[in-house]
Design a protein around this nucleic acid. Structure first.
Lengths: 219, 219
DNA sequence: CCGTATCCCCTCCGATACTG
DNA sequence: CAGTATCGGAGGGGATACGG
């Protein structure tokens, strides 16, 4: 009774399941370069335990994005290859990466700005990660939202972990942006329509598949 | 001591953290349409518990992809809006969705083909989810890999959940594909270089940040 | 070299109940 | 309506040891 977990129906959710997990993107990244043996992957991704790496590879194989070829030589040799479907993930991984970098830059900019405005005079031993001290602009009332103004992230059980360094980047923020152009996301392609009568709450667990008729294509 | 979890340094990993979690994409999807109140989101995503939804929204606010505006009226009103950064996720979510749909189609096609080739004569009450019965082509030896040839997914603790319907789509598979064009993914943009002396294994937990000097931009 | 099994912690997420 | 507190289960993922 191995893995297999019945992927979600909703496309985006499904995709996230497939590339989700801590190491899948790394594996993909290296498999995009070309076929790799297990030992190579282990070398390329030193922080993953073999168990988990194999697990990830099994799932990816299961999901049809990697192929596994066994060479029963001595010593045994196993080569993992990105399938066509797997290779089709390349632009997505790439986009994720690009976005992640941009996101890091923008957030750091905001954090830096927030810090210069109110610097605690005492010495900072650890990295303090503050975040927006926004003001909620109301239609009728003014409310100053001062939640979670400064959160110190205390390293937990680590020992000699390199700190998460941060630098500053000048960057403006944007307040509100008009939204309109709807993109027809979601909707499970083949079948499973269901008109979804209302008043169905607190019913079944809806765990894996999640009927989620919510994401309708229209409206 | 609320949330805040120190995002990973590696861009792609970071991005996945930001949109990861079961409901973030749904929230994003609806916020792309325009600002939404909490109650609206609850209505639009009926399967999420309020606690978790609020959690997700808090994280997304923390990560700078949604704004939260409080209107201290009676009754209280709170509106969530996608920030500029959040809106920049739209193409990614869209891509994920597209890919998920395609993935569902292709996998179903393979499954269907696998089923017609070896149909168990007994009656199938549940959906059987089989997967490739690949043959590993060796350079020297031939090895028939017949692992996990048929995995029955027995619905677990559910009650009256609409079944995961499946249809068939004609579609060929691809065997191997040449890979070469490297895209410069990864590499945390700002700072944190570290030359990483070798022979550092089985050291610290490397849990959250994960130094992962692995993903170098070059090579 | 490749892989599995075991143990164990910690996160995610759901249910429920209670405040403003 | 919006939000928090608390409990509890399921699963991901790490360390380690063992088997082909």
């Amino acid at each position: 009774m191995p893995i297999m977990k019945e992927l979600p129906l909703v496309p985006a959710e499904r995709a996230l399941k497939v590339i989700g997990g801590r190491w899948k993107v790394f594996v993909l990244y290296f498999l995009f370069e070309g076929p790799k043996r297990l030992s190579e992957l282990r070398r390329l991704i030193p922080d993953v335990s073999q168990k988990v790496l194999v697990q990830a590879l099994r799932e990816m194989e299961e999901h049809g994005i990697v192929d596994r070829e066994i060479f029963a030589e001595v010593p045994p040799r196993v080569v993992y290859t990105a399938t066509k479907l797997g290779l089709s993930l390349r632009p997505i991984v790439s986009a994720l990466c690009t976005w992640g970098r941009q996101h890091a830059d923008e957030l750091n900019a905001i954090d830096e700005r927030a810090r210069v405005s109110a610097t605690p005079p005492s010495r900072c031993t650890e990295v303090t990660n503050s975040r927006r001290t926004e003001v909620a602009n109301s239609r009728r009332t003014e409310v100053t939202n001062s939640r979670r103004t400064e959160v110190a992230n205390s390293r937990r059980t680590e020992v000699a972990n390199p700190p998460t360094q941060r630098t500053e980047v000048a960057n403006p923020q944007a307040r509100r942006a008009s939204v309109s152009t709807r993109t027809s996301l979601e909707r499970s392609s083949t079948g499973t329509r269901r008109t979804e009568t209302p008043s169905r709450r607190t019913s079944a667990r809806t765990k894996p598949g999640s009927d989620i008729a919510a994401i309708r294509g229209g409206s």
